Simulated scan of single mutants.
Amino acid sequence: MESLVIPVLILLAAGAGVLLVARVMGRRAAGRRAGGHTPPADPVELARAAAARLTEDEHRRLYALIAQGQAMAAIKLYYEASGEGLRASRDAVGALAAHPQPFRPAAPEAPEPDDDDTPERFPYRYRAIASKGDVTREVSSNMLNDEIYGRIRTLARSGDIEAAATALTKHSDISMKQAREFIALLDD
């Protein structure tokens, strides 16, 4: 007799979950007949939109609650995760239960256009070395690369020392004084 207690409890919990979901769906149908809140016409679109509002962890937890028949806990989770109202959360969970949706990560944002004002960090350290006679200076930074260093050298060769020094300080962690000293050594 004791061996049947656990399976009977599991069966009762599953039955209670099914009754709860049926009750929620029945109330939804009664609300539509009474002229109350009407969910969007297409439940598949509602399910897609609802799934898109969830993170991967929330999505996984929500479907675990639906599978366990814990409709109220699923609605509460969706309500807290989405910030929507209680009725909208109920409708969304109902749509997700009726039309399961796979998790789709948010589309990656388009990269911002390359702007010289904000230096990009590279996964490597770039070393620029300038020397004249016995004097040698080195600048090492992960915000420099061949293209940027080439622009700095071009500015220095054209005589615009201040612009070259400003660009160098913007793309490295050296002071303006150190940048001017480095630029002065770039006479090729």
Rank of each mutant, 00 (worst) to 15 (best):
P102L: 00
I66Y: 04
A130T: 02
G94R: 13
V135I: 12
Y149N: 10
A64I: 06
T136R: 11
G150H: 07
R61S: 08
E147N: 10
R151C: 06
R137E: 08
R151M: 11
N145C: 13
A110G: 04
L65F: 07
K132T: 08
Q68P: 01
D91V: 03
A88I: 07
D114H: 11
D91S: 05
Y126V: 10
V93L: 14
Y126M: 09
E109A: 10
Y79T: 07
P100V: 02
A73P: 01
P111C: 05
L86D: 13
M143S: 07
R90N: 11
E109N: 05
P111R: 14
R121W: 11
V135D: 05
D114N: 07
I129D: 13
I152R: 00
G150V: 00
Y78W: 14
P100S: 02
D146W: 02
V93C: 13
S140D: 09
E120N: 07
V93M: 14
P123L: 08
L86T: 09
L62R: 11
Y79E: 14
A107L: 09
P100E: 06
R125S: 12
Q70D: 12
D116K: 12
E112C: 03
P100I: 01
I148L: 06
Y124Q: 11
S89I: 04
A110I: 09
T136L: 11
